[in-house]
């Protein structure tokens, strides 16, 4: 397991296309998390539905 992590880190920091692929995956994942939090998570919305009383 340790070997695998070392291998991934090595590739990640190398100047190769495989390394670029890992950068792409990491950047896409972080951006997706950011977009989910800002747009879809519902953070900051009122706790109770406003139409409850209709």
């Amino acid at each position: 397991m340790r070997k695998l992590a070392d291998k991934i880190a090595e590739i990640f920091f190398s100047d190769t296309w495989a390394g670029a692929l890992l950068w792409f995956v990491a950047a896409a994942a972080l951006l997706a998390l950011l977009v989910w939090f800002l747009v879809y998570s519902g953070f900051g919305e009122p706790a109770a539905p406003v139409y409850e009383n209709f």
Binding site: D15, T16, W17, G19, A20, L21, L22, W23, F24, V25, A26, A27, A28, L31, A32, V35
Partner: peptide, 14 residues
């Protein structure tokens, strides 16, 4: 190469 990867990721999401 990293720059290209990050730009592609931004394009993919945005």
């Amino acid at each position: 190469k990293r720059l290209i990867a990050v730009v592609l990721a931004i394009a993919l999401i945005c």
